[in-house]
Computed example of a mutant assay.
Amino acid sequence: MVVFVQPFEDNSETYVVDVGFGGSGLVRPIPLVSGDRSEVMGVGPAEFHRLVKEPFPHSSLAQGVWNLEVRHISESEMDASVNSTWKRMFSFCEQEFFYEDCVTASATVTRSHPLFAQNVLCIRYVLDNQSLDSDLYRVIMHGNEVKARRNGETQVLATLKTELDRVKALREIFGIQVDDSCAKFVAGGLAQLR
């Protein structure tokens, strides 16, 4: 699910906002235009996002599909004229969806996709006070670890051995106020720590 935002009065300039995708997803609004004109920085100067619109596959209709793409630049590429490749993150259309559509789609994805059915995932974006450019970095809970990814480097912040460890990390690292009793909702399920 993405949200279209038109922040200026008397102006139809539209931006895409997607705060829930995670991983290498958007952290800033991106203009709803195709190609290089849409390019925005991700969490730091080594990550970029853009939108590319293309015809909807196998359709004779004129409508298109938007693709959100990400590009990560290594240190060697920053100093040279090497262009890293763009990777498609997801696609979306401009058709409006309603509450019932979102509930059904969410249930289908979370029940059928192993990433969501077999894991507790949490991602937090943090302002990097050590950066001169006020860059962001990601803190990610996945599996039995909480990791910080900053400037292409990964640091393990916590190793989780029990469901109570996971609940404690959600509180202390991610700022999510959950009670210890919440561990029972994961215990015995597919996402339980092994």
Rank of each mutant, 00 (worst) to 15 (best):
G25I: 00
Y15L: 13
A105V: 15
I176N: 06
V16M: 00
Q130E: 14
A62K: 13
T14M: 06
A169K: 03
V33H: 03
E47N: 01
V2M: 02
H72Q: 10
S112K: 14
Y15E: 06
K168C: 09
Q118A: 05
V52L: 05
S106R: 15
I73K: 13
E77Q: 14
N67R: 07
E145N: 07
T108L: 15
D101M: 12
V33K: 02
S24N: 09
V3C: 12
H49V: 01
M89T: 06
S81D: 03
S134I: 01
C122D: 08
G42W: 04
A107F: 06
Q95H: 14
S81M: 04
H49T: 00
L32K: 07
T85K: 11
S181D: 12
P29C: 05
R138L: 04
K147Y: 03
L190N: 07
L193M: 07
M1C: 13
N67F: 02
Q95C: 13
S76M: 10
L164K: 15
T159N: 06
L160W: 05
L68N: 05
Q6G: 05
G175E: 09
T110S: 14
L68W: 01
S181N: 14
C122Q: 07
L115G: 08
F97H: 15
S131K: 09
T162A: 13
F90S: 14
S84L: 03
R171T: 07
S24A: 11
V2G: 00
Q118S: 08
F185P: 04
V103M: 11
Q192W: 08
N119M: 09
E77V: 14
A148S: 01
F97S: 13
T110Y: 10
E69M: 07
F116Q: 06
V17Y: 05
G152W: 05
G143T: 04
R150H: 03
E9L: 14
L115P: 04
F56P: 00
L170I: 03
A62P: 09
I30T: 14
R150I: 07
E13K: 13
F21T: 02
V16D: 02
V43K: 03
D165N: 07
A46T: 02
E54C: 09
M41H: 05
N83S: 12
S81G: 02
H142M: 13
V103S: 10
D101L: 11
Q155D: 02
R124M: 04
A169C: 06
V82N: 08
P29N: 06
T108M: 15
Q192M: 13
V156G: 04
Q192E: 15
A158F: 02
V19S: 15
L121F: 08
R171V: 10
Y125V: 02
L32Q: 07
A169T: 00
Q130D: 13
W66A: 09
T162H: 13
E75W: 12
V167E: 08
S76V: 10
R124A: 02
E69I: 01
K168M: 10
D128Y: 11
A107S: 11
W66T: 08
G188M: 04
P7H: 07
G152I: 05
R88P: 02
F98P: 04
F56A: 01
R150C: 09
T110E: 11
H58D: 11
S76D: 11
D179H: 14
P57E: 02
S81H: 04
F174C: 01
E9W: 13
V19H: 12
N129F: 14
H49A: 03
M1L: 12
A183Q: 06
T159H: 02
S38K: 00
G25L: 01
E54I: 07
F48K: 00
V186L: 01
A187M: 10
